[in-house]
Nucleic acid binder design. Structure first.
Length: 999
RNA sequence: GCGGGUGUGGCGAAAUUGGCAGACGCGCCAGGUUUAGGUCCUGGUGUCGAAAGACGUGCAGGUUCGAUUCCUGUCACCCGCACCA
């Protein structure tokens, strides 16, 4: 596709470059500097034409009025925001949300508001159809860019953030979005911080009890940690070593309890970058294992981090996807991310103890001829022998004299490799022998134990049983290292034929591993025989055997890992946690919020870039007075000295439950007011959540997880936070690179004969996201300046289906502007400025057009098909302006104004007021289509001969088939095509079509 | 490699879901208004063809009276994940 070639391109126009001295040149490079030209009329033009100046004046006036009158204040059932609720108590509630933005320093570009405008159009339509609509906008204002800006400039991130938020608020207000400003929260607000920390504490003070029944009736639920402690104290739950709870030391008790919490400390593999002093994400690590920023080495190593036990909810996070109305691709992505697979755990005995593996194919255990551990696996050092066993294959040693040296070298090589590098698919597998063997439990054979980086520490147990005949990676590894390959399944002859080889059970002749189904072979020991059985049956039999012999059991494995929740940064929510000499202690909620302490040193401490063993020092570590806190935690110990937790929360924390904050933005000392929460969340949660698909997994999974914990704890009443999700597409734009590959300012590029030039230099055109980095930024401000916010809104909605990505083209905006000009002229005489609607009655034809438009607009709204209604409104407008060039009947003008109101609210308010209405039209009833006008008297029926349209008949609606066929045969054009031919079949669908099949 | 998505005029797109392909808009062309350019208004505009007509929804097949729509294969592009056992 991408057939945008050869054409004209935003933001330049094709054609010769005219002199810049003339005014209003659009087709010239002058617009590059000035942006789109305002549609200001030349002196002498109509004084009351709808143009940028008039639109700007109207928009500012109505925005002020909406603010003053609190037009978009949405009442709660109870509490401080409940004024006016009685008036809407009978209405249906509707909670419409956008994914709130991170306020970046660059401000909004025209792509950002696409979803915001769509939800606003939807919300306004719903208000006009009698709903009590909650719609507002918040800011996800903690985050790395603000911190990096602070590091670079020395300016506190709060200042930078507040400036950015102010810019966003101004830009969003200019768009006329109908948000309740009282609810427009920022995650960095003191109250919001307290809210986030309070939820954290509830999660911290909870554990997942697999025995409990959750509110949906299923197994497993979060419970307050006190109930765990009580069950230990009562003896209903045994301690790990069986001693009574009361005889455990405080340290033992706390360690035991902490190990059950939903938030816990653990050693996890991370990308440690000493040069930056922080842990970096995979995507921040370059292919050669260095940091994106600064180009420092990055080391993979284990480090103690805070984790959230999201894996406890894996089953429910998959199952409850059935409860939500979400795009299927997103649900699929979540299922794949969680990655539930059925299989078995199997224990292999070794000199260092049992090695547990997870396998999805326990039926192939007889073919497990070696084992592979991830290089980081905890048992590697215990398995590494002092010397190579006699007769060790030289390929297994990597040329080292001792296993220790070979293993050490391999481990450090793997650690210095980035994940990206490690995951590059290569033909040659690498690995090294540990010197140890394990026992295959099912046949008693000794199998050598290797380490190799194709086994990942993060999935399963970090160790695998290798079945080279049934797994391609194991197969390649076995070939590489000369390991035995034994068939466990007889592949069908067709498989051999497909790979040009002879059927055989001797795997030496196999071209590759066989991963399909088939009868088991070589699968017999003293107490088990799988031979001849199919996959499912063999798995069941093997799982039963493992269980009976204490060597394993059937098991479910997920790819999902627990959520790494700590960041070694400054600009984030501090943990409401302190530490004593034993471990972490939660602060009581009465001590919230724990404010972020002030400092002017925002960067974490950096280290010698090569010092892999250095430990991170966080910005908050430096604030010694803050870190050392003497507090009375109310636990009976009185004033004690503690160390505050100095990690901060990840940016996701603030976005997990912000919808609850929208509901009760002023609430303190509680998470929700139950009556408000039940009202707005209803049975199924937020009614509509609109945002980009880039959040399909992480944000939406974390948010669902927190919500489910709160659900189990009785704080919220719905199992899922978001009933309906809609992914809007991206608006993209062209970008240009010079011969060195550097981006050049897109607004300075000219097109000549299909080629592109920047200051005379030939440049290359690319297509991508709008933004500073591609130097193709277009801000909504400049479009508002040139045309007005209503035009921008209308244009963005008309660009195409909301869910589709599409390119920005500033020139195309004028179409929306012209439509608004025509709508304006329907009501207002642009010379005199007077209202010019008439009291004459609309004709029947007028009403047919009107009511079809109403029907089309109404029918499209619920599905957020926001683009096609504009085409129908355009048709109605064009009908009115051509039929009534001097003013349309009021009975047509008024509904037209109401129809366009969700899209162009300022213009609609202005016209509505000029039509004599005192009240804002925000809650005026949306026009309702009269079915009588939707059915026409006559209908056009195409007549085909052999599937080709030869004529179109206009016939009475409801004309029966035989009459229709007779009319069609009688039609001159049709008859000429039927001449000399035999009609073999006539397909007649009354009201639709006639098709004659002839030969 | 796996998973998901998208391919329709010069461009953004529409097609009531199997029934007139290209609504509506941008751009372009012509005309009008205007001192002039722009704005604004009117008309035209899928391709080939003088016309009749033929062709046309990435490509190749199939099902059907009839396919942008359903099926099979294939190509291109985009997004996500990736040695996941």
């Amino acid at each position: 596709m991408e057939g945008v070639g050869g054409g004209r391109v935003y933001p330049f126009l094709v054609g010769e470059v005219k002199t810049a001295s003339r005014r209003g040149l659009v087709a010239c490079s002058a617009m590059s500097d000035a942006g789109p030209q305002p549609s200001t009329p030349a002196p002498g033009g109509p004084s009351f034409r709808y143009n940028a100046t008039l639109a700007g004046e109207i928009e500012a006036r109505w925005q002020d009025r909406w603010d003053v009158e609190g037009t978009f204040y949405t009442p709660n059932p109870t509490g401080p925001l409940s004024e006016g609720f009685d008036a809407v108590a009978g209405a249906k509630k509707l909670f419409v949300m956008d994914m709130f933005p991170y306020p970046s320093g660059a401000g909004l570009h025209v792509g950002h508001p696409l979803g915001f405008i769509a939800t606003d159009v939807f919300a306004r339509f719903k208000r006009m159809t009698g709903h009590n609509v909650l719609h507002t906008m918040g800011f996800d204002a903690y985050g790395l860019p603000a911190e990096q800006h602070a590091v670079a400039t020395g300016q506190h991130p709060r200042i930078n953030t507040e400036n950015n938020v102010a810019t966003y608020r101004r830009q969003l207000r200019r768009l006329g979005l109908g948000h309740d400003p009282r609810r427009a929260v920022s995650t960095t607000d003191g109250d919001f911080l307290e809210f986030t920390q309070r939820i954290f504490l509830r999660i911290f003070n909870a554990w997942f009890d697999p025995e409990a029944t959750n509110p949906l009736g299923g197994p497993g639920a979060a419970r307050h940690i006190d109930r765990l402690i009580a069950s230990f104290a009562e003896g209903t739950r045994p301690t790990p070593d069986g001693r009574p709870w009361s005889s455990l030391t405080e340290r033992e008790q706390r360690t035991l309890v902490d190990s059950h919490r939903l938030v816990y400390l653990a050693e996890v593999p991370v990308n440690w970058c000493p040069g930056l002093g922080t842990i970096v994400a995979n995507e921040e690590v370059t292919a050669d294992g260095r940091s994106d920023r600064g180009n420092f080495p990055v080391f993979k190593r284990n480090m103690t981090q805070w984790l959230m036990r999201i894996t406890a909810y894996a089953e429910r996070l998959i199952d409850d996807l059935d409860l939500v109305d979400w795009p299927e691709p997103v649900r699929l992505m979540q299922r794949n991310w969680i990655g539930r697979s059925l299989g078995a755990r199997v224990s292999f005995a070794s000199t260092a103890g049992d090695i547990d593996v997870f396998t999805t194919r326990p039926d192939t255990l007889f073919g497990a001829t070696f084992m592979v551990l991830a290089p980081e696996h905890g048992m590697v050092s215990a398995l590494t022998t002092d010397s190579w066993p006699t007769g060790t294959d030289p390929r297994w040693t990597n040329g080292h004299d001792t296993p220790a040296s070979a293993i050490g070298a391999y481990q450090s090589a793997a650690a210095s490799k980035s994940d990206v590098d490690r995951q590059v698919e290569t033909k040659t597998k690498t690995g090294v022998f540990t010197g140890s063997f394990a026992v295959n439990p099912v046949n008693g054979r000794d199998v050598p134990i290797f380490i190799a980086d194709y086994v990942l520490t993060g999935y399963g147990t970090g160790a695998i049983m290798a079945v080279p005949s049934g797994d391609q990676r194991d197969f390649e590894f076995a070939r590489q290292f000369g390991l035995p390959i034994q068939a466990t399944i007889r592949p069908p002859d067709a498989w051999f034929a497909e790979h040009q080889s002879e059927p055989s059970l001797d795997c030496a002749t196999w071209p590759m591993a066989y991963v399909g189904d088939g009868p088991a072979v070589n699968g017999t020991n003293d107490s088990l025989s799988l031979d001849g059985r199919g996959k499912a049956e063999a798995i069941a039999a093997m799982n039963a055997w493992l269980e009976a012999n204490g060597r394993g059991h059937g098991s479910v494995q997920t790819k999902l890992r627990d959520w790494l929740f700590s960041r070694q940064r400054y600009w984030g929510e501090p943990f409401p946690i302190v530490h004593d000499e034993i471990g972490p202690i939660a602060l009581p909620e009465s001590m919230l919020p724990v404010d972020l302490p002030d400092t002017d040193q925002f960067a974490p401490r950096s280290f010698d870039p090569e010092d892999a063993q250095s430990e991170p020092e966080r910005p908050l570590d430096r604030l010694v007075d803050w870190k050392n806190a003497t507090l009375d935690l109310g636990n009976g110990k009185g004033m004690c000295t503690y160390l505050r937790e100095t990690n901060v929360m990840p940016q996701w924390a603030g976005s997990c439950t912000y919808y609850l904050r929208y509901i009760d933005p002023t609430l303190v000392e509680a998470i929700t007011t139950p009556e408000n929460e039940r009202y707005w969340m209803g049975e199924r949660g937020v009614d509509l959540y609109v945002g980009g698909v880039e959040h399909a997994v992480l944000h939406l999974l974390y948010s669902r997880f927190w919500h489910k914990v709160l659900f189990d704890l009785g704080i919220v009443g719905t199992p899922e936070p978001f009933a309906r999700l809609f992914n809007q597409g991206y608006i993209q734009a062209y970008a240009y690179t010079d011969p060195r590959g550097m981006y050049v300012e897109a607004s300075e590029v000219e097109e000549r004969n299909g080629e592109f030039f920047h200051h005379g230099e030939r440049v290359n055109r690319e297509y991508g996201k709008i933004g500073k980095s591609l130097k193709n930024m277009v801000s909504p401000d400049e479009i508002c300046e040139a045309y007005g916010a209503d035009t921008l809104r209308l244009h963005e909605m008309s660009m195409g289906p909301l869910e589709q990505s599409k390119p920005w083209d500033t020139r195309a905006v004028s179409g929306a502007h012209r439509l608004l000009q025509r709508i304006w002229r329907v009501v207002v005489d642009e010379d005199s400025g007077t209202t010019r609607v008439t009291d004459s009655s609309p004709t029947n034809e007028d009403l047919v057009v009107l009511h079809r438009t109403i029907h089309a607009v109404t029918a499209a709204m619920d599905d957020l098909r926001v683009n096609t209604p504009i085409a129908r409104i355009t048709e109605l407008t064009n009908h009115l302006t051509s039929t009534y060039p001097n003013g349309a009947p009021r009975g047509l003008a008024e509904p037209l104004v109401l129809l366009v109101a969700p899209y162009a609210p300022h213009l609609a308010e202005e016209l509505w007021s000029r039509l004599g209405n005192r009240q804002s039209l925000i809650r005026s009833p949306f026009p309702v289509a009269n079915p009588a006008y939707l059915v026409a008297d006559t209908v056009d029926v195409p007549v085909q001969v052999n599937g080709k349209v030869r004529s179109v008949l206009t016939v009475a609606t409801g004309l029966d088939g035989p009459s229709l066929e007779a009319l069609a045969r009688a039609d001159e054009k049709v008859a000429s095509h039927l001449m000399d031919k035999t009609v073999r079949k006539a397909v007649v669908i009354p009201g639709k079509l006639v098709n004659f099949v002839v030969s």
